[in-house]
């Protein structure tokens, strides 16, 4: 019953967001239904489109799964973006220096990405637990530092011979690329998708079926009472940071070894920030993260077609994503207010 009560306003809000999107398109003078069908066609219309969508889905899944963990611990982990970048940097380092065949290098890049992301998250964690710096500020600051380091490496120590440009390092040797599975004439990002789905499953199981998860949620709900009940709060907070950061870091690995095949300054693709929207929309639930993340990347990937075919600015995709989140949150708040209002009127007489 409560589930249904929650689902109805969400669906209504989604529908309202869609109507708003259509109105926007009409204002812009674009054919709304053609535009919407182009979004779908652009993200799922052919084997190569589906492959591209899945490739973008994977890092978003990983980053979102990491965020679910830290949100469960009651942390506003705005530093995901930086953790993705540090994962990408660590993975790039391995891809550049570790010799040997793919089955050595590729797992190495994944491990490195996890470590890079975890270390960066723990920095924000220690700043919180030992320095009293709120994780929003610590995380945001570290985001900028990570972006700065990536840019410095690209234009500095890792630059191409004879060139100093922020456009990217040399392409990694083929062995360091995440392997693709060839089918239907396209390469499929099987490894990234498996990593993404595994991360969501891991987080789901962890939060639902383990003592760690139970305690973590208890820390998230009321850290002071949990502490009084004997849970080592700081250790759980740092554990959440480390795990969340590791998953975000692997998202960085995917970005460098499966998509760009080199390090670029904008390596995170903004997935760290997009993941926050995904998790908010998913109501912090791991199970909902997968479909919502898919929906979001489909809009991102598909919106290129709006530009190519209709001459619309593809920023429209981002606007649509933002509108959806706003409407759903507004709808949720509205439903909650109505519920409390009806309770209070029932009590009055």
């Amino acid at each position: 019953m409560t589930r249904l009560r929650l689902a109805v306003p969400t669906l209504v809000s989604l529908f309202a967001a869609l109507v708003f999107g259509v109105l926007l398109l009409l204002v812009v003078g674009a054919p709304p239904f053609e535009a919407l069908s182009l979004l779908v066609e652009g993200s799922f219309g052919s084997a190569s489109k589906i492959s591209a969508t899945l490739l973008a889905w994977s890092p978003l899944l990983l980053a979102s799964a990491g965020l679910v963990i830290t949100f469960a611990a009651g942390l506003w982990n705005i530093g995901v973006e930086g953790q993705v970048i540090m994962g990408a940097i660590a993975a790039s380092w391995v891809a550049r220096v570790v010799p040997g065949p793919g089955w050595v290098v590729v797992p190495g890049t994944i491990l490195a990405g996890a470590i890079g992301g975890a270390v960066w998250a723990l920095l924000a964690g220690f700043l919180k637990t030992h320095g009293g710096v709120h994780e929003i500020f610590g995380g945001l600051g570290l985001d900028f530092v990570a972006a700065g380091i990536a840019t410095y490496l690209v234009i500095g120590p890792w630059k191409r011979a004879g060139v100093a440009s922020t456009s990217g390092t040399d392409i990694f040797r083929q062995e360091a690329w995440m392997p693709e599975f060839q089918a239907f004439g396209v390469g499929w990002p099987v490894v990234p998708v498996l990593l993404g789905l595994a991360s969501v499953a891991l987080v789901w199981v962890l939060l639902r079926g383990t003592l760690f998860g139970l305690r973590l949620k208890s820390v998230g709900n009321n850290s002071y009472s949990s502490f009084l009940l004997g849970i080592p709060t700081n250790r759980y907070l740092l554990g959440a940071f480390a795990l969340g950061g590791a998953l975000a870091g692997i998202a960085g690995t995917v970005q460098v070894t499966a998509f760009h095949h080199k390090l670029v300054p904008a390596i995170s693709g903004g997935y760290g920030f997009l993941a926050i929207l995904v998790v908010l929309l998913a109501g912090f639930s791991a199970a909902l993260v997968a479909p919502i993340a898919l929906f979001f990347v489909a809009i991102s990937v598909g919106s290129t077609q709006l530009d190519l075919r209709l001459g619309l600015d593809s920023a429209f995709g981002g606007v649509l994503q933002g509108v959806i989140v706003l409407f759903v949150m507004f709808g949720g708040a509205f439903a909650a207010r109505r519920a409390s209002w009806s309770r209070s009127t029932q009590e009055e007489p």
């Binding site: 926007l24 204002v27 812009v28 001459g311 600015d313 606007v319």
Partner: peptide, 16 residues
């Protein structure tokens, strides 16, 4: 958002 949309519309007109 509406303003952004309006700004986008100018470029779409150019293309048409």
């Amino acid at each position: 958002f509406a303003l952004v949309a309006a700004a986008c519309s100018s470029s779409s007109e150019e293309t048409t």
